[in-house]
Write a protein that binds this DNA or RNA. Structure first.
Lengths: 140, 140
DNA sequence: TAATATACTATAGATTCAGTAGGAATTAAA
DNA sequence: TTTAATTCCTACTGAATCTATAGTATATTA
């Protein structure tokens, strides 16, 4: 897996929105300033989050974005999956399936597959609410 | 972590050498043909393995490469680390250290750090001998 | 109607990836 | 001693991906 800036920013946008649940629709300009990220770049990223129905939006003045659900209901994996092309550790695997021709002969594939499963399991186990509280990593 | 073709090929070379322990020094030409990988590309990869003292070589006719140690003593992590620039899931982390400016403020860093530790632990736990036998993944 | 947003498409520079090219140095066998 | 086979070393290159930026159209509210 290689999580690019798109994925990292997507996560930070979601965290930012989760941190301000009382503000209703929050404009990208606000998020971009708070997070120190280019607003134009965020537009593209949030477009994917919207398409996957992780956020909802209104246009025009006083418009912006907000979460659709409770923070605890979003997993990190869910967020990353809608913005990253491939989360597997190697290009031989995509969305849990093996995309390699000589996979039967390759002695390394089962190891990559298990690694992919371990990382996905971890990312599914962490929620947006976990990131907000930080409790899982207290004292580390 | 993004394991590139360099890392995947390095692993396959090591597996190939481990599969032919009785052949003494094996030429890259032989490995390249067996594995279906460009020999010129392998030269560069094996250069790193040699520098890290994972393999030893002799030059000239009848020359080639062979493992320095028993297959069970090499971890997958060890092999990948000497060929891949960064094995962390995000560029904010490198070799277990955080390289990001606003890490104290960033709510996602502890999660990335833990993910990095989980994947490294897994890769350290798998040996070349495990890949050869395939026993760890029997019946999956 | 003016101001403020989102929504959409195209483009571009920088970096990394994946591999190639060419030749120098070394060694064993003929 | 010559020849063939091999490692070793450096430089280069085309393609892909990453990381945005630019410009414009559309929608909404005050």
């Amino acid at each position: 897996m290689n999580v690019t800036s798109k994925g990292r920013y997507a996560l930070r946008v979601m965290v930012d929105l989760a941190q301000h649940p009382e503000d209703g629709f929050v404009s990208l300009k606000t998020v971009a300033e708070r997070q120190g990220i280019s607003m134009k770049y965020l537009e593209m990223i949030v477009g994917h989050l919207k398409k996957a129905e992780l956020v909802e939006s209104t246009r025009g003045k006083e418009g912006g974005y907000r979460l659709c659900r409770d923070a605890a209901s979003y997993s990190v994996g869910e967020i990353l999956h809608c913005i990253e092309d491939n989360l597997a550790p190697v290009s031989c695997i995509r969305d849990g399936s093996i995309t390699c021709d000589h996979a039967e002969l390759c002695l390394t594939i089962p190891m990559w597959k298990e690694l992919d499963e371990i990382t996905n399991k971890y990312l599914e186990s962490i929620t947006l609410a976990d990131l907000l509280s930080g409790d899982k990593w207290k004292g580390t």
